[in-house]
Amino acid sequence: MSGNRPDVVVVGSVNADLRIEVDMLPRPGETIHGGSPSWFSGGKGANQAVALARLGRSVTLVGAVGSDLASADLARQLAAEGVNLDRLATVNGPVGQAVVFVDPSGENSIVVSPGANAAVRPDLVRRAHAELAGAKVVLAQLEIPVDAVLAAASATRGIFVLNPAPAVPLPPELLRRVDVLVPNRGELAQLCAAPLPATVDEVASLARRLPCAAVVVTLGGDGALVVDGDTVHHLAPPAVTAVDTTGAGDCFCGALADALAEGRPLVDAAEFAVRAAALSVTAPGAQASMPTRAQVLAAEAPDEARPEDRMGVPR
């Protein structure tokens, strides 16, 4: 890191997460009983920044918290993780909040109230121009206004990675500026206005519709699919017992950005991210479950084939 310029800048949300364990995820109109509620630090931007900090990467978070006590607590926790908060604004009102329901298999259903995240506008992002222009990787999501994400992409001189979650319509101007798009299967389908893809071939076909340089689709327990030019790689995850999948996608994005900042090729970076995300689902909570670099490296199987040795999916 040179001066105050980090390796990675994360532009995104900060939330307080209320986690409730349930026997099954609620259906429309259904009332169910849940376990005791637990509060965790969350927000896709904050989660991804913590994932990067746990991996030892220098990272600055561009975003906003509110004027309530929860905001102060969240900021203290982020600083304790090693996230640089020089570009984290404080605005009047509550911090963003999310209610997370988790079933016995670890699957979740989430409702988000934006709170202070709605104040992350282009002018706030532009204050971080020096950091954005100097970063090796800029990572953003969609729990903040889209025009702020476009401002971040416009200022980026390194690699711009976008996690389009939650999925909303995106202007072509933004998609064309994305170097690596990281949707899950459902977000990919929404971006392409298509049915949910059922097979790897269908996922690859949809990914090729998007005007991004490369697309990495997270597939949950099936790993990830890297679609980069004429090549497609399906990366399988290690076998783990899932406790809570909350934050797994954020862990993947943070680890991917870390590996790209290190200079790894995209497939190698995605392989590293798959392993990190698999470790994250073995513990509850979002930020609390993010693994360290030592834990991810320890989980690597030395006799396993390298990503470039895997059989790709024909185009």
Rank of each mutant, 00 (worst) to 15 (best):
P37N: 06
V161L: 07
A259S: 15
L235Y: 08
G34H: 02
P94A: 13
V91W: 05
L210D: 02
L52C: 10
P265I: 06
R310V: 10
C212T: 15
L69A: 15
A130G: 13
D23S: 11
P211M: 10
G3L: 15
L150R: 12
N15K: 05
A53R: 09
A128Q: 08
P238Y: 09
P94N: 09
C253K: 01
V203L: 06
T245I: 01
R315T: 08
A270F: 11
T292A: 07
A194V: 08
D7I: 00
R157D: 08
A283D: 08
A118Q: 12
V281N: 04
Q295F: 00
F252A: 03
V59A: 11
V226R: 03
D268Y: 00
P195Y: 09
V91C: 09
L191C: 08
E187I: 05
A261C: 10
S67F: 12
G223V: 09
V50S: 04
A259L: 06
P197G: 09
G56K: 11
G312T: 04
R293Y: 02
P238A: 09
A239F: 00
G247R: 00
V296K: 00
A165Q: 03
A242C: 10
A214S: 15
A148T: 07
S289C: 04
A53F: 12
L170P: 01
N92T: 13
R275Y: 03
L61D: 06
A189S: 11
E271N: 14
M1P: 09
L191G: 05
V11E: 04
D23H: 07
D17T: 00
A259P: 02
A236L: 15
D147M: 12
V227G: 07
A155P: 02
R157F: 02
P314Y: 06
V267S: 05
V120Q: 13
V146S: 10
P307D: 10
